[in-house]
Design a binder for these strands. Structure first.
Lengths: 202, 202
DNA sequence: TTACCGTATAACAATATTGTCAAATTATGG
DNA sequence: CCATAATTTGACAATATTGTTATACGGTAA
């Protein structure tokens, strides 16, 4: 087993790249093999079928940004203190893997029935996470803001700009990808203040 | 030409449904024909090829929420006054066609090069739209907030919750689709206040 | 009725895609 | 070195998909 790990790596790397870009149905096994520079049969050798290869890629993608969400829910810190770190973690992840949001959302949208099982596998229990927030709400930090709405806002502000990367770059930054990235980095400092500010009664 | 319009309608309706759900590559012409209850050859009869059928669907989808964005840019109203109407328009569109965001974003992400051409076709010129905002910024309404960041925030808060529908429903509303929709409706009143509030210096 | 035109269908050809299998090649332990 | 196991390859079968073409159907107007 000298090169096995290596080729398996190459397969996953190419599969990620292409699945992210073109989706599951839009990517053929041959495409992946070509990109990896190996024989197509090897894909079946290491990953039984296309379904299983996709499954591996999808779970890896989920695993890349689910922990960020899970950690904040299970953290002992008060939410307000954890917020800046959370925002920074999410945005950094998005900058590193900008195609993941659409990839994951598209798959979950096509197969919504997968959600419950995946959440179980990822060890996420909404109830646990929320009891924590609800305590803080009682303590007055959230004011009148509904905790769920608040959570939706945070995720929206952090993730959407990456799902809409091409649109935003073209529409707001005249196609300048550098300027777009800079703007995303700025958001790491911009958002926490804005979010906390949104909790204040007008 | 007695039934031609009717079958053509059926084709587009089924194509929209399936393309939205499974994407272009994930949907076969046969799938669409079956869903429409017609012979597959008719798809080629009315729309030369799969590419052209998809193109028709995609443009129709773009047309459904681009006007909302364009109108605010070209409106004579001051932005602050227009905001509530804009938010309501976008969210209502999303509620009616919840799958469009992912569908459009996925396609634009796969083919970013299409953006410039599409923007031209839709008659959107970023520069024109922004001169307007920049005036208002000078007049002090936006405070220190960068207009582009502000715009990103508005779109994120309005659109993302629909792109992430399945996740949010499962994660925050225990799979209760009704509760999810109610929450989205609430956002129509919630967001304008929150957005304006975010402009205030802390 | 008949000739005609738009519409609909069935059959076909060409190509793509997936998964399997046997054979070849390479690495590894004795 | 040799035997064995892991890895890689080429060839194959089965199926799916797309687009075309020739034909059939149905309404309409002369």
């Amino acid at each position: 087993m000298v090169l096995s790990t290596e080729t398996e790596q190459k397969i996953v790397t190419s599969a990620e790249k292409l699945f992210y870009q073109k989706g599951k149905a839009g990517t053929s096994m041959q495409d992946i093999a070509d990109d990896a520079g190996i024989n197509r049969t090897l894909l079946n050798y290491y990953f039984r079928s296309k379904d299983q290869l996709f499954e591996a890629v999808f779970r890896k993608a989920m695993g890349r940004f689910v922990p960020g969400l899970a950690s904040v829910m299970q953290s002992d810190m008060r939410f307000s203190a954890y917020l800046p770190h959370m925002v920074e973690t999410i945005i950094d992840t998005m900058i590193e893997h900008p195609q993941i949001p659409i990839f994951v959302l598209q798959e979950l949208s096509s197969n919504p029935n997968r959600m419950p099982q995946i959440m179980r596998e990822m060890g996420i229990d909404p109830r646990v996470g929320f009891s924590k927030f609800e305590e803080e709400q009682v303590s007055g930090i959230f004011g009148r803001m509904d905790v769920r709405q608040f959570f939706i806002n945070v995720l929206s502000l952090c993730i959407f700009p990456f799902a809409a990367r091409s649109v935003i770059t073209e529409l707001l930054y005249n196609g300048d990808g550098e300027a777009y990235i800079d703007a995303m980095k700025q958001r790491k400092k911009l958002l926490p203040a804005l979010i906390m500010n949104s909790l204040t009664e007008k």
